[in-house]
Computed example of a mutant assay.
Amino acid sequence: MKICRKESKESQLWLKLIDVDEGIENARMNLLQEATELTRIFGAIIEKMKVNKS
């Protein structure tokens, strides 16, 4: 899960860095939102795994 979270964070970074024309800006923003949501989901899973181990 930590690797998945790290990869989704990296995807967010690259999606923020790329320069696209207006035609596909909407698609880039949708992908950025999805990567952000996945990062949060993986983070929540990691936190729940920590709680369950205790």
Score class of each variant (00 low, 15 high):
13 L>Q: 13
2 K>L: 11
17 L>H: 09
39 T>Q: 11
6 K>R: 15
34 E>S: 12
14 W>H: 11
41 I>E: 06
2 K>Q: 14
19 D>G: 02
43 G>T: 09
5 R>I: 00
12 Q>L: 09
3 I>S: 13
34 E>G: 04
26 N>H: 05
12 Q>G: 10
25 E>M: 14
32 L>I: 09
23 G>Q: 04
45 I>F: 01
24 I>H: 06
36 T>V: 05
34 E>W: 08
15 L>E: 01
27 A>N: 05
27 A>Q: 08
21 D>G: 12
10 E>L: 13
5 R>L: 01
29 M>P: 06
20 V>Y: 05
49 M>Y: 02
54 S>F: 00
46 I>F: 06
3 I>D: 15
12 Q>K: 15
3 I>G: 01
46 I>E: 12
11 S>I: 13
53 K>G: 12
26 N>L: 02
33 Q>R: 14
11 S>N: 13
13 L>M: 10
48 K>Q: 12
15 L>G: 02
38 L>V: 04
3 I>R: 13
7 E>K: 11
1 M>P: 02
26 N>C: 01
37 E>G: 11
37 E>S: 15
1 M>N: 02
14 W>D: 02
42 F>I: 05
19 D>I: 04
11 S>C: 12
20 V>I: 08
32 L>H: 14
41 I>W: 00
22 E>L: 03
16 K>A: 03
43 G>E: 10
31 L>F: 14
5 R>D: 03
8 S>Q: 06
15 L>N: 02
38 L>N: 14
12 Q>W: 07
15 L>V: 00
28 R>I: 06
54 S>Y: 00
3 I>K: 15
45 I>K: 02
25 E>P: 03
27 A>V: 13
20 V>K: 07
34 E>Q: 13
4 C>G: 01
21 D>E: 07
30 N>P: 04
42 F>C: 14
9 K>S: 10
41 I>P: 00
47 E>F: 07
13 L>F: 11
45 I>M: 03
36 T>M: 10
37 E>P: 05
7 E>P: 00
2 K>G: 11
17 L>G: 01
25 E>L: 13
12 Q>I: 10
9 K>Y: 08
7 E>M: 06
45 I>R: 02
28 R>Y: 03
2 K>V: 09
47 E>T: 10
21 D>F: 05
24 I>E: 05
49 M>T: 04
5 R>Q: 11
10 E>C: 05
53 K>L: 13
34 E>P: 00
8 S>C: 09
17 L>D: 07
